[in-house]
Every structure is written in structure tokens, then in C-alpha cells.
Amino acid sequence: MSEQKNLLSLRNIHKAFGGVIAIQDFSLDLKAGEIVALVGDNGAGKSTLIKIISGVYTPTSGDIELDGEAISFRDASTARAKGIEVVYQDLALADQQPVFMNMFLGRELTKPPFGLLDKQRMREESQQLVDELDVRIPSAASTISELSGGQRQGIAIARATHWASKLVLLDEPTAALGVAETARVEDQIAKLKEKNLAILIISHSLDQVFKLSDRICVLRRGKQIGVRETKNTDKNEIVSMITGVA
């Protein structure tokens, strides 16, 4: 990674729900064009962290800086407005709507003079987006329910990258996919680097983590165990960090 300033900085993030501490003293920097993997056992706090970054939760204490600017998100839509997009585990796609409407869900394009939907432009832009990421679907007008799991995942990723100007958070992007589809989605994620976006990915698959990420951040029971450069570590080290067993 070239030396450039941090896109996202998390400083000493704490999050407690009542008396239960979910995240303690978490700090991490992300640079544009970098993929960081977040790993840890179930309940380690990965999803909580994603929700804090995407504005769903407000941290109990700690600072978040985006592009060197201190921010506090009131809700998910302010985070979205700042260029942060999430690909949720359940994909958040409306199954009975066409691909292009999903791609522009909540941010539909309209045309003058009456502000009606510009379906043609949405279709064309969607087609372009899926082509860029090599998501192979019959057409941008296809209904989501007609698509395979991998195709849907591709759509969700394409949507996030289209709207994210800075950061994409991926929550278990291949958990429900078969081998071939997983490989295709991994290719798509790798392509996001070219768009100079910062990417934070949660994954249970260490193979995937090692294939995709530049750095790996390990969480255990809400504590940040450590961050490693992917090229300077190996699976054994990461597994022992995750489990706490030397």
C-alpha cells in the first residue's frame, strides 16, 4: 500500500448495551483501495462493529473520522450520504422487483418535467454496472427472484459499489453460496479495489480472507486482538488469535 492518508479512522471505540460490553477499545485505519478482513468467532462483535460504522449504532465512546473529518452518524442514511455502503448478509433485495429497480432502490432516477421514473436510464446504468463486475444475468430487467444466489450477491455488491464513494462493508458475502459462485463473487470483490474504495469484509472463510485481504483484524469477545498484514502472517497465527489458544 502506498503511503496515503487514512480514509476511515476508528479510535478507541467502545460500545455497551446496558451493562454488556460488545466492543472495547477498538481502533483501525482503512485506506482507499485496501481490503481489510474482520475475523472472529460468533459473538466476537464483528456485526456490531459494522453497524457502528454504517450508522445503525452510535458508539458509547470513541471517535470516527472519515477523510480526516470527525463524524457522528445519526442513522444509516447519513452514513450512506457520506459514501458508506453495506452489503448485508440477507442482501436486502426486493425479490419481486427487477434488477434495475433494486440497483436504484430508494434512490431512483427521475426525469423532467414531471419527475417520473427514468426507467430506461436506470436499466442502462444497471446493465453497465453488472457488466463491469462481470455479474452475468439475463438482463437488467430480470426479476430478482429469477436469479441464482450468486447472481443476487453480485447485484447486491454492484449496488453497494455504485453508491459507495468511499467505503463498502461486506457482511459474510459468500456464506450462502456454492463453490463456483463463491469464486465468482470473490473476483467481483477483488475488482472493487480498482475503484479505489476501502473495503471491510466479514468472513468465516480463512481461505477467502487470505485470498482477498490486504490486512486481517481479529476480534475476540469484543476485544481487538490484533491486526496483521496478510502477506506477513499465516492461517495458524490467525486461528490462534481467533481462538485464544496458542
Binding site: V86, A92, L93, Q97, G106
Partner: peptide, 16 residues
């Protein structure tokens, strides 16, 4: 309207 009926969670997280 369609998105809300189709998948309210998806509608919500996309700012509807």
C-alpha cells in the same frame, strides 16, 4: 410502495 411490500427491511436500509 412496492419495495416496502416486497421486502420492508431492504426498503428500510436503502433509505425508504
Amino acid at each position: 410502495v412496492l419495495a416496502t411490500g416486497d421486502n420492508p427491511r431492504a426498503a428500510l436500509v436503502t433509505g425508504i
